[in-house]
């Protein structure tokens, strides 16, 4: 089964959840990232997501491995969409299952923050009066080692 994918087609949320179902799990959390219309008062018409697909899949898998080391008996599945997305479309789905609920929330949060650090995916925002590649949402660049340096789990 492919637990980590880049998809050109709309993401089937249930299919991602099904990948992490396990008998040891007491909780599954899902994160669904969607395309927001307003950013700092500016109206987005649509987004284009682009990925360095082969590396992005590897980095998603790395994040899954980090989670499975930090939170024992967890299971992770992540799919990120690419291409043109309209407002409210689903850009990313992360499912994490763990034996206990607190870990499932924490590990899922960790996954989305790491995606914003190390996974080579970019979005171009299109507005009524222009377009721009968005970068560095966390106001820092990814780490060469690909390793976390402290808890940067704030947006």
């Amino acid at each position: 089964m492919n637990y980590y994918e880049i998809s050109k087609e709309p993401i089937d949320i249930q299919a991602i959840i099904d990948k992490v179902v396990q008998r040891d799990a007491g909780a599954i959390t899902t994160f669904i990232g969607t395309v927001r219309e307003l950013t700092k008062g500016k109206k987005t018409l649509f987004l284009i997501y682009e990925a360095y697909e082969s590396m992005a899949v590897k980095k998603l898998a790395q994040i899954g491995q980090e989670i499975e080391e930090k939170w024992p008996n967890s299971k992770v599945a992540i799919t990120h969409r690419v291409g043109k997305l309209d407002i409210t479309d689903i850009a990313v789905v992360i499912a994490v299952s763990t034996p206990h609920r607190a870990d499932a929330y924490e590990a899922n949060r960790y996954a989305i923050e790491r995606i914003k650090e190390i996974v080579p995916i970019w979005k171009k925002e299109h507005w009524e009066d222009g377009e721009e590649w968005i970068g560095d949402q966390l106001e820092k660049v990814a780490y060469p080692t690909g390793k976390p340096e402290g808890a940067d789990l704030h947006e």
Binding site: G33, Y49, A51, Y52, M55, A56, H80, A91, V92, I112, I115, K116, E117, I118, V119, P120, I121, W122, K123, W133, I134, G135, D136, Q137, V141, A142
Partner: peptide, 10 residues
Amino acid sequence: IAFIPPVSGG
């Protein structure tokens, strides 16, 4: 070799 501008997935 690939150049990776600051990423903006998610």
